[in-house]
């Protein structure tokens, strides 16, 4: 599924070329390459021209590497930053760290009354998987498919994908309380007005306040911010089976029916 590659070229300046997605599947690899690159020379160029997107883990790695390079008197330069990556970095609030400037995106606001949702005939897509990376990625794909099916397009789909990635990564990392392989569920509900995505795990659930107060540059803080930024409404729920993140994306235009 994940065909991302991270190439490290060591020379006068270290160049890391990233292709594909940087997400929880290759965070470790990316982190290792970064640390090698930063410790290897004064200037590290990260070529993100092939990268589709970053997730919170990758951003956290970049921040850590940047800090390390600053301490060492080295520098990290991002090149080939695509619009979507730029958007993610911006949503994370860390774009300026890397010397990126971008246009402030317009803040999306709810255009529907939430009470309308109750009367909708929801189309449900649901799947439960064991907490394995590959399966979780399948769930993310399923969420993206459901979002498309629900009528979302363009940036909205990217947003859903980002939110799904962050929520599922969180579930994968924190949803197994006893170390055993627990189950992660994805439930997408679609109606003409909104797309709702629920990610459930068997963990203790996300303590929103604790996450908000945590280190904003840590992975969790970045992830939470990404979710909030990418989706319109986010709820953190708990029940006896575990925690659940409910995320809503309003659908602005009716999907064009064929």
């Amino acid at each position: 599924m994940n065909e991302a590659t991270i190439d490290l070229e060591l020379g006068r300046e270290q160049v890391i070329k990233v292709k594909g997605n940087l997400d929880f599947c290759n965070t470790g690899e990316f982190s290792e390459a970064l640390s090698r690159a930063v410790s290897g020379g004064r200037r590290t160029v990260i070529d993100l021209s092939g990268a589709d997107m970053l997730d919170s883990g990758a951003i956290a790695c970049l921040v850590a590497a940047h800090n390390k390079a600053d301490d060492a008197g080295a520098s990290i330069v991002l090149t080939g930053v695509s619009e979507s990556v730029r958007r993610v970095l911006h949503m994370s609030g860390l774009a300026s760290t890397f010397g990126l400037t971008l246009v402030e995106p317009e803040k999306k606001k709810s255009c529907y009354d939430r009470s309308e949702l109750r009367r909708q005939d929801w189309r449900i897509t649901e799947s439960v998987v064991l907490a394995e990376e590959e399966l979780v990625l399948a769930l993310r794909d399923m969420a993206v498919a459901a979002a498309r099916e629900a009528g979302l397009s363009g940036e909205s789909v990217v947003d859903v994908r980002l939110a799904a990635t962050e929520a599922l990564a969180n579930a994968l990392l924190h949803g197994s309380p006893n170390g055993q392989k627990s189950k992660i569920g994805l439930r997408c509900l679609a109606c003409p007005r909104a797309f709702v995505m629920e990610v459930s795990d068997e963990g203790a659930g996300l303590d929103e306040d604790a996450a908000a107060q945590g280190e904003p540059r840590a992975r969790e803080g970045i992830g939470l911010r990404l979710i909030r930024q990418s989706m319109d409404e986010v709820e953190f729920l708990k029940d006896e089976r575990g925690g659940r993140v409910r995320m809503l994306k309003w659908i602005r235009e009716m999907p064009a029916r064929e």
């Binding site: 189309r123 449900i124 897509t125 649901e126």
Partner: peptide, 13 residues
């Protein structure tokens, strides 16, 4: 699906 590791629920349509 997936060797029993994934369950997809076929909700009402």
């Amino acid at each position: 699906a997936r060797g029993g590791k994934q369950q997809i629920l076929l909700h009402r349509t």
